[in-house]
Design a protein around this nucleic acid. Structure first.
Length: 883
DNA sequence: GGGCTCACG
DNA sequence: ACGTACGTGAGCCCG
């Protein structure tokens, strides 16, 4: 068997991948779709061909001999899309890391390099495969050189293969003649001039008959269509030049040593680092690396025996007392089950103490609590989780590495220990996936115990090891204060809130659900009757079919997959079709039933309370998020939904006090922008939307209509979201023109706002991130997109994030202050929920007045702005009444 | 697992 | 011309 070489046209494949695959970015905001597509094609080819040699050629951005011949060669090309341009050096680095030879040479295009190597290899007796998206390469096909053209289809990548005979089959000309055809017909993409009046058909006919431009010229008289005959006579010189331009130079002056291209195992450690960074998770499985043990891993130890544990704790606390060092502690728990705790004292000492036998949960927690109090600094990947197990005095210095990493880049979707090791220690270590795959801790403890133990040790060790780098970066980015005085105390606040939970009346919830069921069944029947058949109303596809195909309703919007049946579409149809109103109501009821009535019931624990989770490291802006269940989206806008709030109850002897900020975001905007008029409006006015309406629509305050006020309110919202005329027009059901007028008038009224928003965008473009009053940052990579939509999105983010984020900072500060006051004044009342601009406190009956005062004071004084931070506080015997 | 829809601020 | 308001989470459908 002959040896085989694969040659790849780098730019062409990268280009093809870029346009064939939707935009993709890793968590650093690096565009990766082209690199991803390229590697996919590369792996497919390698798996199929198993070649002995491999080389990738790239074009160099410099004039070639063709430009010297013909100035306009390739014309004035559109600049490469920014997202693709970025990926070229990345691609090269990845290939280099894989040990793959890259060839490029000034004065030549990749085609010439590929052609030259192909001919040399073929002479040396090799089988050659050239991979390119460009059909021009077909001229290189021979009996031993195969041209492979990948096509990205929905079903995956398919590759068309061309040996010389396949070119003849498909194009009626040989590969050599292919150049002549191209020269005659020209190539607009490369700006190669053709012969006027000769297109693909005529060119092919001429060359099949005469085999070359030169020979055709010798037999000019015989050329059939007189039009073609004259054209060639007149433009022969140009055709000859085009032929030289189109011909690939197979004698390029390059130095190529085939031995260098020998395919070695390229699943190297170095390449692995790149694949990790690019987040090509499914490709990582190709690396069967026996990851060399990290230095620290040699000192990992698992403890399962009481005497070992005793010795460890005794030694560790003694050592900590002496050294005053930082200690890494990680709780290894899942679904309420604690599998053990890992402790890292230094690079030389990391242990995983398992809950097993004599080492009971309570023994372990007690010991860890003791150890934590000895540490000069407690470093952990999840402080809140730890606080829910052991009590740690607030004076204890703590460092949560996950929260630190979140502040440094809030856009990542996870902050796992291996990610942190990569980002802050430049260290590649096996991830959870690498170690225990998709197994739960419970399963892993049985089936992959060794790996679970390693994972546990890594979790504590990496946390400890990252602390210095994280703190340094927080300092450099001016976020250390935000971290220490807002986020760290907040972890304590949230831990308390989650432990406290909220009481939900399961019986009342059940009744509510049953009432919904009855109405849902009635509606269901009504809908089937009107539709004339039974179908799944919850399936947008089936519903769309019924409404728009069967009942022939006018269909406005479409989604990627079919008709849109979203509420705003159905609202318009509801006027004319009673079935649509029923469907809307059905949707509302089933939502209430499944998400709230049934959904919430599943979370009530034996203490009669729901203990949700407040996530501190999820949102891009700095807000909290709430899960399992989400207690931040309990219905309120519609009365039927709002009734659910009656099942949220204070415990005996307590009431609810609920306080929310009044228009906090708009007030933040007034302050941050310094707009005189808006600030002045807030100082005097009761009703800010009415004042806005009066000023924007030039109407005396007393004469502002409800419609004007509603419009002004929408504009105020729009401003905070990063206004666009389209968005506003949608919201108000007005034309874009009208929306534009509103916006223009608004900015004339509040010129300071306009200047401020413009400045936010400019600053974000200069620095790459948006920043809040308290220094919280959000990178905005979208600002640099070449796509208009994406870029506009980036601009709205740059306007909205500082506002939404500052409001989030303020309520976080308020939460900490409220908690501190409740504690200081030794009250039994507890903060239990936060809903972005609202705090709910379960308040002891005899503490109501005091807590009201605390809530108002601490919320209003959480920040001092140019305008007052007003709060509305209400008392109630359930959440419905209190809000 | 992604898309659609809808609940909240 | 492009085809959107900003930020979330959950349940359901369907390939």
């Amino acid at each position: 068997m002959n040896k085989k070489i694969v040659l790849i046209d780098g730019h062409s494949i990268l280009n093809r991948a870029f346009f064939g695959i939707p935009d993709l970015t890793n968590s650093e905001g690096l565009h990766t779709n082209a690199v991803y597509g390229f590697l996919n094609i590369l792996f497919k080819i390698l798996d199929e061909e198993k070649p002995d040699y491999l080389t990738v050629a790239f074009d160099v951005h410099a004039p070639t001999f063709r430009h010297k011949m013909f100035e306009d060669y390739k014309g004035t090309r559109k600049p490469m899309a920014e997202e693709l341009r970025q990926q070229v050096p990345v691609m090269k680095e990845v290939l280099q890391a894989m040990g793959i030879v890259i060839m490029e040479k000034e004065g030549y295009e990749a085609d010439d390099i590929l052609g030259t190597i192909a001919r040399q290899c073929e002479e040396a007796g090799l089988e050659v495969s050239i991979v390119s998206g460009d059909r021009d390469l077909l001229q290189l096909a021979t009996e031993h050189t195969k041209i492979r053209i990948p096509k990205t289809k929905r079903t995956g990548t398919e590759i068309e293969d061309y040996y010389a005979r396949d070119v003849v089959d498909k194009y009626q000309v040989t590969p050599g003649e292919f150049i002549d055809v191209k020269a005659l017909m020209g190539d607009t993409a490369d700006n190669i001039p053709g012969v006027p009046g000769i297109g693909e058909k005529t060119a092919t006919n001429l060359i099949t008959a005469f085999h070359s431009i030169e020979n055709a010229y010798e037999h000019l008289e015989e050329i059939k269509p007189p039009r073609a005959q004259n054209a060639l006579r007149e433009h022969y010189d140009m055709a000859c030049m085009s032929k030289t331009l189109a011909a690939i130079d197979v004698h390029a002056g390059i130095e190529y040593q085939i031995e260098d291209a020998l395919l070695k195992d390229f699943y190297t450690e170095e390449a692995y680092v790149y694949f990790k960074r690019l987040e090509f998770k499914n490709m990582l499985s190709r690396f069967e690396l026996d990851t060399p043990k990290n230095q620290a891993e040699q000192h990992f130890k698992t403890i399962t025996m009481l005497d070992e544990a005793e010795t460890f704790f005794a030694e560790a606390s003694q050592e900590l007392g002496r050294s005053k060092a930082a200690t890494g502690i990680a709780l290894i728990a899942e679904k309420g089950q604690i599998y053990g705790i890992s402790v890292s004292l230094s690079e030389e000492k990391t242990v995983f103490i398992k809950t097993e036998g004599f080492l009971t949960e309570s023994y372990l927690l007690e010991k860890i609590q003791m150890l934590a109090s000895c540490a000069a600094l407690l470093v952990t990947p999840d402080l809140k989780a730890l606080l829910k197990q052991i009590s740690i005095p607030e004076e204890q210095s703590c460092f949560d590495t996950t929260i630190a990493a979140y502040l440094l880049n809030p856009l990542k979707n996870e902050y796992s220990y291996d990610d942190l090791a990569k980002d802050y220690l430049n260290l590649m270590i096996p991830s959870r996936m690498d170690l225990i795959g998709k197994l739960s801790f419970a399963k892993a403890n049985e089936e992959k115990e060794e790996e679970l133990n390693r994972l546990a040790c890594y979790t504590a060790y990496i946390s400890l090891a990252c602390h210095t780098a994280l703190e340094k970066q927080l300092e450099e980015t001016q976020m250390l204060k935000l971290y220490r005085s807002v986020e760290m105390p907040l972890a304590f606040t949230l831990a308390d809130m989650e432990m406290e939970g909220i009481c939900v009346d399961a019986e009342a919830l059940k009744i509510y659900g049953e009432e919904l069921s009855v109405k849902i069944q009635e509606l269901e029947q009504k809908i089937y009757d009107q539709a004339g058949e039974r179908f799944n109303i919850n399936s947008p596809k089936q519903l769309g079919g019924i409404l728009f195909d069967k009942l022939n309703m006018p269909n406005g919007k479409k989604t990627k997959t079919g008709y849109s049946t979203a509420a705003d579409v159905l609202d318009k149809l509801a006027l004319d079709y009673p079935i649509v109103s029923d469907i809307l109501e059905y949707r509302q009821l089933t939502k209430l039933k499944s998400t709230y009535a049934d959904g919430l019931a599943a979370y009530i624990l034996t203490d009669g309370r729901i203990h949700g989770t407040f996530n501190q490291t999820i949102t891009a802006t700095g807000r909290l998020s709430s899960t399992e269940p989400n207690l931040q989206n309990i219905p309120i806008r519609m009365e039927l939904g709002r009734l659910i709030r009656k099942v949220f109850l204070p415990k005996d002897g307590f009431v609810f006090l609920d306080a929310d900020y009044s228009q906090i975001e708009l007030r933040v905007l007034a302050h941050m922008s310094g707009d005189k008029n808006l600030i002045e409006a807030y100082r005097h006015a009761e009703d800010i939307h009415r004042v806005t309406a009066s000023q924007v629509f030039h109407t005396p305050f007393e004469e502002v209509t409800d419609l004007q006020r509603r419009n002004a309110k929408a504009v105020n919202f729009g401003i905070v979201y990063g206004i666009s005329s389209f968005g506003l027009s949608q919201d108000l059901s007005i034309t874009r023109k009208e929306a534009e007028m509103y916006i223009k008038s608004y900015f004339e009224t509040y010129p300071g706002i306009k200047e401020f928003l413009d400045r936010l965008v400019k600053d974000a473009k200069d620095t790459g991130y948006a920043v809040t009053m308290f220094g919280r940052r959000r990178p905005v990579p979208e600002l640099f997109s070449s796509n208009f939509m994406q870029r506009s999105f980036g601009e709205r983010i740059a306007m909205n994030s500082p506002i939404q984020g500052t409001a989030a900072d303020i309520i976080k500060i308020a939460m900490n202050r409220v908690r501190a006051r409740l504690k200081k004044e030794q009250l039994k009342s507890k903060l239990i929920l936060q809903v972005h601009d609202e705090l709910l406190i379960e308040t002891a009956d005899n503490e109501v007045e005091q807590v009201k005062q605390i809530l108002n004071e601490e919320m209003q004084n959480a920040a001092h702005l140019e305008v007052r931070l007003e709060t509305d506080t209400k008392e109630g015997s359930n959440w419905y009444e209190a809000h």
